[in-house]
């Protein structure tokens, strides 16, 4: 009754790949961000999941309120000196492997807030994989950053914190 398929029929249903490639594909297809909206950039970050931009096409629409369920931290906004230890703690609570996107001028360099209260670039606090320029960046720009990050994962490049720790080799 068609239950015993022929060898030719069976071969048509098989895809050959490596475990690493398969893992990387799975990883890049579900990069879940942690919510870390700090300022006006967060508004653009929110709209990237809305129907107009629809980040769900790339599997990154599930913003998690708990760092323990997140792979990606989008630092959206200026980081104050008082927020820095909180940000670092949240980053440390995220399971590995983890990535960081620094969204906007303030998170990347302090932006116009060249004063005592603001960290002049979030890379002083956590290792950053992708920087997004703009004030604020458009949702398209953020989406481009996420696509770049997906490329990075697909290529097997290690996250920035592993690169800095001297494990800068390809994982396969």
């Amino acid at each position: 009754m068609g239950l015993n398929s022929t060898r030719a029929e069976a071969e048509r249903g098989i895809l050959l790949t490596t475990v690493e490639k398969m893992t990387r594909w799975a990883q890049k297809s579900s990069v879940w961000p942690a919510t870390f909206g700090l300022a006006c950039c967060a508004i653009e970050m929110m709209s990237v999941t809305s129907s107009r931009y629809d980040l769900a096409r790339f599997g990154s629409e599930a913003f998690r309120a708990s760092p323990r369920q997140a792979d990606l931290m989008i630092v959206a906004g200026r980081v104050s000196q008082k927020m820095a230890p909180v940000l670092r703690t949240i980053w440390e609570q995220m399971p590995e492997p983890k990535w960081v996107i620094s969204m906007g001028a303030c998170a990347s360099s302090g932006g116009v807030f060249d004063n005592y209260a603001i960290i002049q670039g979030v890379d002083h606090v956590v290792p950053v994989d992708v920087y997004v320029p703009g004030c604020p960046p458009t949702p398209d720009a953020l989406m481009f950053a996420i696509l770049k990050l997906r490329e990075k994962i697909q290529m097997g490049l290690p996250p920035k914190y592993l690169e800095l720790a001297g494990e800068g080799r390809r994982t396969s």
Binding site: Q81, D114, N115, Q120, H124
Partner: peptide, 15 residues
């Protein structure tokens, strides 16, 4: 006390 006039105005660069 950062709002004093003799307090440095620039950001604290770590690098």
């Amino acid at each position: 006390h950062p709002l004093r006039k003799d307090y440095p105005t620039g950001g604290n660069r770590i690098d």
